[in-house]
Design a protein around this nucleic acid. Structure first.
Lengths: 118, 118
DNA sequence: CAATCATATGAATACATGTTCATATGTAAC
DNA sequence: GTTACATATGAACATGTATTCATATGATTG
């Protein structure tokens, strides 16, 4: 049964049924879009891109991005909650690096696609 | 020269200089994050996921997603401006499909990563 | 233990974004 | 040409989000 959304009468019911039956589960859907959303901000891309080169502490990142410590820390927190970065403490300092190869792959793909398009 | 951002004194200048010199150009940076941002919404993911299966018209999409025609059309417009979908008109109807293999690849990767994580 | 430094975080603010509502455009049917 | 239908779009609204500011936490140094 197709819900009555607006007054459209010419729906291809067969195609819709087929496609609809294979749509993503809600949890997976949210997981996917949340992951992409995390990559959908220039500041976070820069952080991840920098960390893809080497492990860096928060203060290094502020210097690389030329942004406030607070802004960087807030973004790092988001990246942490989405398991995109790992960190270790060393005295006062906290060193961050990419969580795993997936993040690297996503970054590479994004960069490749964006640069190639030129 | 590293800009004086907050009062941090223990910056690893060498590392910062090295990483900073290899950061992304502004245009590329924005291109990358804009592309990911386009994928960072559940509605758009669903639209792209549906179109990955087969070409569909707007009315079919409203039925598949069970959302208003207006909401779908607005999202399709965004996807069009970012060259993620193509369309063709046939009478009153407008049929959409994915623009190219890149979009498919991104989707596959997102799905794979999200499902595997379980 | 007082001062300093590196980092984290809550609150406030400004801006971006997704959906709805109303309406416009364009095509087909009568 | 009038009516109905498929799609597009501007404006309004509500919600999200990125940064700043102020401040807290936690570790080191003198």
């Amino acid at each position: 049964m197709i819900d009555d959304v607006c007054q459209i009468k010419s729906i291809n019911e067969k195609a819709v049924k087929e496609v609809k039956s294979k749509m993503l589960d809600y949890d997976i859907l949210i997981e996917i879009s949340d992951n992409f959303k995390m990559l959908g901000d220039p500041t976070r891309i820069q952080i991840l891109y920098a960390l893809a080169r080497r492990e860096l502490c928060v203060c290094d990142l502020t210097a690389v991005l030329n942004m406030s410590q607070s802004a960087i820390s807030h973004q790092l927190r988001l990246l942490r909650t989405k398991n995109m970065v790992k960190f270790r403490k060393e005295g006062k300092m906290v060193y961050y690096k990419l969580a795993d190869e997936h993040v690297v792959k996503f970054m590479e793909m994004g960069v490749a696609h964006a640069t190639e398009k030129k």
